[in-house]
């Protein structure tokens, strides 16, 4: 494998067991860093507001991203639209640490994702199931996350995606070698990736939970379902006491198997984000880009 791909997969390894937080200002980025975030996602509007505002949502202003890069020492990520390789080139030019080719923004291409192997900068992509995850990895993504349903504060979709991926992984593991060719065909992915999952029982890259995480309990749930870390978007800065909630979610990811500690963490966090139920949403962002 190319050195660059390996280095980029390795950065994601370093984020494992951590929380990546959406921030819109340098002040929020500092709160996130102080709370123990392992990275921040710089964006102009958090998903809840993108959802509320409607209209076309694009890459953030590079100046705003640079302001956040200057404010913190942890890795800074930013989103570009699905298939919008020019936005990705711009983000690479300002030396972003990770690009999220994200369904939260309006897709720029309804057929092709970005050819991520052409870039030196690493990419994280969303996936609802194993086939989607492996297709993104084949295109060069070096980190995967569930698609969840961003900006809703409803965990159900992230749970569905994570359970689907884990169950499909277990199926591949239990298959005999000659069944893998057919599995590769069904999943619409190259054979070598299927073989890797069969032999190792996991994706070849780090797999995070994203979308709808609003409480320490949500974070612990996703970790117990097999996530290796958590993205929190609107859940923190749409809540009553962001600093406290941010810290509580970081600690919940560290101690996800300890209900006693989780109980303490869940106390007195102030108002959680209001949230929208899955049935109430008109726009399913997870359906963007397969």
């Amino acid at each position: 494998m190319e050195d660059r791909t390996q280095l980029n997969r390795n950065l994601a390894q370093m984020l494992k067991g951590g929380v990546i937080m959406d921030v819109t200002t340098p002040e929020q980025a500092k709160i996130a860093e102080a709370a123990g975030a392992c990275a921040v996602m710089a964006l102009e509007r958090i998903p809840a507001d993108i959802r509320a505002a409607g209209g076309v949502s694009r890459m953030s202003d590079p100046k705003m991203i640079k302001g956040i890069q200057e404010a913190v020492t942890i890795p800074v990520m930013a989103k570009c639209r699905i298939g919008h390789f020019a936005e990705a080139q711009i983000l690479e030019a300002i030396e972003i640490d990770y690009i999220d080719e994200s369904e939260v923004l309006s897709p720029a291409d309804d057929v092709y994702h970005i050819d991520k192997r052409k870039f030196k900068v690493p990419f994280v992509c969303g996936a609802k199931d194993l086939g989607e995850a492996l297709r993104r990895i084949n295109e060069g993504a070096t980190m995967i996350r569930t698609k969840g349903e961003p900006g809703t504060g409803d965990i159900i979709q992230a749970v569905r995606h994570m359970r689907m991926m884990q169950s499909e992984i277990r199926k591949l593991v239990s298959m005999s070698e000659d069944e893998l060719y057919e599995a590769a065909k069904q999943l619409r992915v190259p054979y070598d990736l299927v073989q890797f999952v069969h032999e190792n029982g996991k994706l070849p890259v780090v797999n995070f939970a994203a979308g709808g995480v609003a409480t320490p309990a949500d974070a612990a749930l996703m970790m117990q379902l097999g996530a290796e870390g958590v993205f929190v978007g609107s859940g923190i800065f749409k809540s009553g006491d962001p600093a406290k909630r941010a810290q509580a979610i970081v600690k919940a990811v560290t101690n996800y198997n300890n209900p006693k500690i989780l109980a303490e963490l869940s106390e007195d966090l102030g108002e959680a984000m209001v949230g929208i139920n899955e049935q109430e949403i008109e726009l399913l962002m997870a359906e963007r880009g397969k």
Binding site: Q13, L15, K16, G36, A37, P75, V250, K251
Partner: peptide, 15 residues
């Protein structure tokens, strides 16, 4: 091990 030192310090302090 490796990771983010700010996050690791935070956890060590809190715990």
């Amino acid at each position: 091990p490796g990771g983010e030192s700010t996050a690791m310090m935070r956890v060590m302090k809190d715990e």
